[in-house]
């Protein structure tokens, strides 16, 4: 172990890694769910996350709404945004080659980034402080920010709820069916469009919660704030096995822990923090081309 690292700081770093990893996991789920159902890498997902951060910022800092009202509105608007993007930019291309769909996703991503820059300016805005969440508290000589503990708890609850929906409810069953076979799902009477919209709604809602928690931890918003987390969470989804929700959670946690612990143990590598995701990606894909929990990929016809 690197000299100077005490047990206390190590524990603190673990908690920190867990909270960063949980945030990544929340966002990674959106990538994996959309991929599972459309075989599309939704490049706009990071920007949906960014828009959610702005919705919260406007609600609290501009319109002075109570935080809980703001959170509900943010989640609602973000779901609407996700559903609308699918409706307008992806659905008309459902039968087009996958490349067209991918290009459309990149287009939506640029559009959101530029609209945000135009409307909100490219300057970072300070996100309102949540003293309740950020004032450190101490346990036996350790200092924690409450937010670092709240994040994993919220993430755990949401992920459990999601797994319940996917595995135990009728709409979840429909999602799993649509993910493997559109035509047969239609023969069961499943309305494909509704199921796809629900998928976007859920993925966007999780990104919205991720954005709210993210901004409590890193209190600033700017139009390009979704780019790097978006890329990392996409990588997290691939590491875990894209299409697999548990894989996305696992991938997010692995990335979060690796980043935080690398910086803690080797402060000299701090500048490379964002690169570690790629290193892990390459290593894992070399040995497990389908990711940790991914199944052998069957191309959809």
């Amino acid at each position: 172990m690197v000299v100077g690292m005490t047990m206390e700081t190590f524990l603190q770093q673990l908690i920190n890694g867990l909270s960063v990893g949980s945030l990544y996991a929340l966002i990674a789920i959106g990538y994996t769910m959309v991929y599972g159902i459309l075989r599309l890498i939704n490049f706009a997902h990071g920007d949906i996350f960014m828009m959610a951060a702005y919705f919260t910022y406007f609600g609290i800092a501009v319109f002075f709404m109570p935080w809980y009202v703001t959170f509900i509105i943010t989640i609602g608007l973000t779901m609407l945004l996700g559903i609308t993007i699918e409706r307008v930019a992806y659905r008309p291309l459902r039968d087009a080659p996958k490349t067209s769909l991918l290009i459309s996703a990149i287009g939506v991503s640029f559009l959101l980034e530029n609209v945000a820059t135009y409307l909100f300016s490219g300057k970072p805005q300070a996100f309102p402080e949540f003293p309740l969440m950020t004032t450190p508290f101490f346990i036996g000589g350790l200092s924690f920010q409450p937010v670092s503990i709240v994040i994993p708890i919220v993430a755990f609850i949401l992920m459990s709820a999601l797994l319940f929906i996917i595995n135990k409810t009728k709409i979840g069953m429909a999602m799993r069916a649509v993910a493997v076979d559109y035509d047969t799902a239609k023969l069961m009477g499943i309305k494909i469009n509704g199921v796809i919209s629900s998928t976007f709604a859920i993925g966007s809602a999780l990104a919205a919660v991720g954005a709210i928690l993210w901004c409590m931890k890193y209190p600033s918003v700017l139009p390009l704030m979704g780019v790097v987390p978006g890329l990392k969470c996409f990588i997290a989804a691939v590491i875990g096995g894209i299409g697999n929700v548990k894989g996305a959670v696992l991938g997010g946690l692995i990335l979060g822990f690796s980043e935080v612990l690398m910086v803690a143990f080797f402060p000299a590598l701090t500048g490379y923090r964002d690169a570690i995701a790629f290193v892990i990606l390459i290593i894992i894909l070399l040995f497990l081309p389908n990711g940790l929990l991914g199944k052998k990929q069957v191309e959809k016809v």
């Binding site: 069953m173 799993r176 069916a177 493997v180 076979d181 035509d183 047969t184 023969l187």
Partner: peptide, 11 residues
């Protein structure tokens, strides 16, 4: 009942 059965394999 489609040709090739098409049951949902993961269900």
């Amino acid at each position: 009942v489609p040709e090739g059965r098409h049951v949902f394999p993961d269900l």
